[in-house]
Write a protein that binds this DNA or RNA. Structure first.
Lengths: 219, 219
DNA sequence: ATGAAGCGGATCTTGTCAATCCACTTAGAT
DNA sequence: ATCTAAGTGGATTGACAAGATCCGCTTCAT
């Protein structure tokens, strides 16, 4: 009965566990979920064996790591729903969601790309859905959002802009704001007076860099 | 002197060459440039050896195949520039360009993703650039396009919508038109009266399919 | 001081893809 | 009809990346 009490880790083991977690967080954030556990090990100055001892497979590590990140996203959605101005709520949900994605490639892939998410993190999309739906219908009912925009459009929007976030990351981390601004105006019901775009367009040279960095080579 | 006259291929060899080209065109179109020459061989009902004999490496095959496709893109751009209405020219360039991409994943990757393109196909981007620039400045000068939209924005737009094209391919091949419409309105100088969106939004179920098909899993 | 817990990283495994090689078949010139 | 250069198929090789394991050695905690 009392057999399964979690015996605390030895001091050094605990230290290494932290190191691994930290290293993984950093690598996942900047290189996405594709990084090897070997990479993580090196980055953490720890043997590969140690990593595998603690996290028998990558999913467990990801779960452990992203649980809180994912809650953050959820909290964000709820906060936006609490915004007194429906439109502002919607817009800042998109904006802050993208900021999160920009800061953490891993998170993005987890939310938008994993077949069914890892065990623990799995249910987020289901939990997120009703909130996003509410966010959209509320803005629509207030006559601020086009009547023909659906909650599903937000997901696609995040996808499109996620592309820009990823490609732009090296060259112009904030580029996505330019297109977010445009898209927001496009889905707004009443035409708003045009303001200046929040970020300059890419220069020819930057575009070239992007092309030759082989950003899209995959697939 | 007369040594290098191209001796015509033997009849059967010529037949196989065609088969390979056809198979490759089909596979590149629907699965992208990532397909193996082995795949191509199988699809063409031909041994791998045969493929390699004819096309010592993949680049040569790609070059042979896409030369005309790429010219098509260029012709399209020029045609759009000839359009009497600058805005309509710009819009239809985007639209038809995306139609091309939708029909052929390989073409898309070649244009938007290859580090420096393959030998022959390489120079396209350079040739395309001035035309696109003209297209943009013309629409801008006519007061139809926002003054702060640059030619480089078109590339990014193609990227974003390209994402939708790719993800939507299986589920809703025309989905991208929905977002193209929105983006076009967004970059237009004068607000246009809102019409109905050209394609229905994704349904919840379709979105799920997309998620679980692991469309974005890569990277 | 001693043994269980922890460690490291070389090594094995698996999978993918490009490319080669060579015994066999065939077109087509004579 | 014969003969041979041209062509063929596909098993095989080689390179490489990534996941995972193993085991002799070290360290903590009692």
């Amino acid at each position: 009965m009392a057999a399964t009490v979690e015996r605390p880790l030895r001091k050094d083991a605990e230290r290494n566990r932290r190191r691994i977690l930290d290293a993984a967080a950093e690598l996942f954030a900047e290189r996405g979920l594709g990084v090897t556990l070997n990479d993580v090990a090196h980055h953490a100055d720890v043997g590969v064996g140690t990593v595998y001892r603690r996290f028998p497979d990558k999913e467990l590590l990801i779960d452990a790591l992203f649980e809180e990140r994912v809650e953050e996203m959820l909290a964000l959605a709820e906060r936006s729903l609490g915004d007194p101005d429906p439109w502002h709520g919607l817009a800042s949900f998109l904006e802050q969601g993208l900021e999160l994605q920009a800061r953490d490639m891993g998170l993005k892939q987890l939310l938008l790309g994993t077949p069914q998410g890892c065990a623990r993190v799995g249910g987020v999309r289901e939990r997120l859905l009703p909130i996003v739906t509410a966010l959209v219908t509320r803005a629509r009912d207030a006559g601020q959002l086009r009547a023909d925009i659906e909650p599903e459009d937000l997901a696609v929007t995040q996808w499109m802009l996620g592309t820009v976030v990823d490609y732009g990351r090296e060259v112009r981390p904030e580029l996505w704001r330019r297109y977010l601004y445009l898209l927001l105006r496009a889905i707004r019901a009443e035409p708003t007076p045009a303001e200046a775009l929040p970020v300059e367009a890419l220069t020819q040279a930057e575009l070239d860099t992007l092309f030759s960095s082989g950003a899209l080579t995959r697939s």
